[in-house]
């Protein structure tokens, strides 16, 4: 059964035999992690959906370059983090040039979260995370919510473990300060 194969075996099956089923299984295993990382970084469904699809298409195209030196998850997080940061940069440039999208109204209607309480929870989380600079937010999310080790985050962000710890502790302090008012 293809479902019982590990990540590396699925990658090999996809690359050597062009097995689309193997790719679909990789998507199923990682899509939620990718989506939630994007959603927490970007703060809304439309942007998160766009970047999630971009990440999965990139994985499809670049899977043959995977070197089996790290976990597949780490490799996928590296792509996700880079694409999210690029997306934020692009958005900033667009907003600076006055090309802001007018999709705010659509955002609420197409969201995959329908429960009002859940929406409020996520809004609260977004407001907290928004206070952190992007790089610090990325490290905080990878450590706190995606539960990756410092070594993995170091590979993903190409930052030393020491610098990561300092950045993470800084973010924790800020967030705890904000949580005092909750």
């Amino acid at each position: 059964m293809i479902e019982n194969l590990n990540d590396f075996e699925l990658v090999q099956l996809f690359i050597n035999e062009k097995n689309e089923q193997a790719f679909n299984l990789i998507v199923k295993r990682y899509q939620e992690n990718i989506y939630w990382h994007c959603r927490r970084m970007l703060g809304n469904h439309i942007d998160a959906d766009e970047v999630t699809q971009e990440v999965l298409i990139t994985i499809y195209k670049k899977l043959h370059t995977f070197k089996y030196e790290s976990k597949l998850g780490t490799w996928i997080y590296t792509i996700t983090s880079n694409l999210v940061l690029n997306y934020i940069r692009r958005k900033k440039i667009k907003s600076f040039l006055g090309f802001d999208d007018l999709t705010q109204d659509i955002k609420d209607n197409t969201d995959i979260i329908q429960d009002l309480d859940d929406k409020l929870k996520l809004e609260k989380l977004n407001n907290i995370l928004k206070t952190l600079p992007e790089k610090q937010r990325q490290i905080f999310i990878l450590r706190n919510f995606d539960e990756l080790s410092y070594e993995e985050i170091s590979q993903i962000t190409n930052t030393s473990v020491g610098a990561l710890k300092a950045s993470y502790h800084h973010a924790q302090k800020k967030i705890m300060e904000l949580m005092k008012n909750e």
Binding site: F23, N24, V27, K28, Q31, E32, Y35, W36, T52, Q53, L56, I112, I113, Q114, D115, D118, K121, L122, K124, L125, I128, N144, F145, I175, M179, E182
Partner: peptide, 19 residues
């Protein structure tokens, strides 16, 4: 409390249709 904010129910159809 912070972790509680991440426990959210979502429309599973979104992820099922992703591939």
């Amino acid at each position: 409390k912070l972790k509680e904010l991440t426990k959210i129910n979502v429309n599973t159809a979104y992820f099922n249709n992703m591939p």
